[in-house]
């Protein structure tokens, strides 16, 4: 193992958020993906949707200015934004299943080279925390994943096949880890951008799945360089 610096969570989420296009409806999963909303590109109008039926919420509420009736999917107090709308839970998921979500960013325990991913059940405990992830994964136009490249004990989370029960088959298309940006295509994981100081070989050494290294491999794009 190396103690070379890896990408920070905010940097990983910034990179995924750079892919959001003007006018997109975006749903962010609980945990790391919510960091995507900290990346603001003033040239783009992004509509954030939350499972509880809030369509078009604003940034996290500053301390002392929380509205107790307004939270995002993670239960965090968010602010309202002009144009925001509220629907009930069944209508909120009609919006999801109806194909209105341009991208959902989700966390994961594992992603496999065929685009399967697992994020709701770990074997040490009965049951799981599926929440809205299966509806989102099955029905959003795109699924992006933000997760660490390896487990705490150094095992690859980019696998040939998922070991844990999956959330949706073949859904994940773009993945940011602390070692780079990966596209998931017909040939499997394509390393698009590498973390500074990391070579493709070093990244492959920490990856169970075989990586495709394209000729146009680039260095990881950070917030300030866009």
């Amino acid at each position: 193992m190396t103690d070379k610096p890896k990408l920070k969570r905010q940097q990983m989420c910034d990179r995924l958020a750079m892919e959001f296009q003007d006018g997109w409806i975006v749903n962010l999963g609980v945990g790391m993906p919510t960091l995507c909303s900290n990346y603001v590109d003033p040239s783009k109008d992004i509509i954030f949707h939350s499972e509880n039926g809030v369509i078009g919420y604003g940034p996290l509420a500053p301390e002392g200015e929380e509205n107790p009736h307004l939270v995002n999917a993670g239960g965090q107090n968010v602010t309202s934004r002009p144009g925001m709308a509220i629907v009930h839970h069944a209508d909120s998921f009609s919006l999801i299943r109806g194909g209105m979500i341009d991208v959902t960013v989700l966390g994961a325990y594992e992603v496999s080279e065929n685009g399967d991913f697992a994020n709701w059940r770990i074997p040490v405990r009965k049951g799981g925390g599926i929440g809205g992830a299966m509806d989102l994964a099955a029905c959003a136009k795109r699924v992006f994943i933000a997760m660490e490249h390896t487990t705490r004990d150094g095992k690859s989370k980019l696998l040939h096949r998922c070991q844990l029960p999956i959330t949706a088959p073949g859904a994940a298309k773009l993945l940011a880890t602390d070692l780079g940006l990966f596209e998931i295509g017909p040939e499997g994981f394509v390393l698009r951008e590498y973390a500074p100081g990391w070579s493709p070989d070093e990244i492959q050494d920490l990856t169970e799945a075989k990586l495709v290294i394209p000729d146009d491999l680039k260095a990881f794009r950070f917030r300030d360089s866009c």
């Binding site: 839970h89 069944a90 998921f93 999801i96 049951g127 799981g128 599926i130 992830a133 299966m134």
Partner: peptide, 20 residues
């Protein structure tokens, strides 16, 4: 739940809402 003292059915959130 882990001790089998309560039963549960896990339902995806959108399916839960739509079933209701």
């Amino acid at each position: 739940y882990n001790n089998d003292e309560i039963d549960a059915e896990l339902v995806p959130q959108g399916t839960l809402a739509e079933r209701i």
